[in-house]
Amino acid sequence: MPPNATPAILSVQSARLGFDRPVLGPLSVDIPNGARWALTGPNGVGKSLLLKAVTGQARVHGGRLHLAPNVDVSLLGQDHPRRQPWPLSGHDWFRAMGANTPDQPRIQALLDRRLDRLSGGQWQLLRLAAALHSGSAQPSRERLVLLDEPANHLDAEVRGDAVDLIAALPANATLVMTSHDDDFLRAIGVENHPLEGYFDAG
């Protein structure tokens, strides 16, 4: 590591990732602490799989995936179908995610409502807010927030709120997200990192 380089919160070295068998890699990437990264690339390149491997939902079949010590990881999955009926409120969701509720009026307005009665955009916004605030009550621990296609289902009404929520992430938290929505990425102001650039040569 160069002398002034920021230490990596996530270090992936020649990792082969997959579920029952490896389907991605070898891949090597170091994500610095406090980064604001967007992993980009075509469908099927493995962006979501990498995020799932970080949270243990996918397996590391070879190589190494190392998280810095004392890091709490939260993930907004790409899609969360809702059961009908589903007797949970917005408050229940934040509690389950271990998240403080943010002050945004649009989020506050959703907290007393049942999740199965929200629109698709409202549901996505609520999940995004919970993922961003999950673990925020423990400032002593580092946070890595993973967002898989957070712009999905966001209509014009709530898109600005989503941008504001992501932009308000504290500087000591690290953000890694995937998105195909260039306008959304520009609005947030994250660094674009095409995932293909991190595959090991050969």
Binding site: T55, Q57, D72, V73, S74, L75, L76, G77, Q78, D79, H80, L88, D92, W93, R95, A96, M97, G98, A99, R127, A130, A131, S134, G135, S136, Q138, R143, L146
Partner: peptide, 13 residues
């Protein structure tokens, strides 16, 4: 039971 509702989302706790 609360935790069972979350997947595919993952909480920091």
């Amino acid at each position: 039971w609360r935790h069972a509702q979350l997947a595919p989302d993952v909480p920091a706790k």
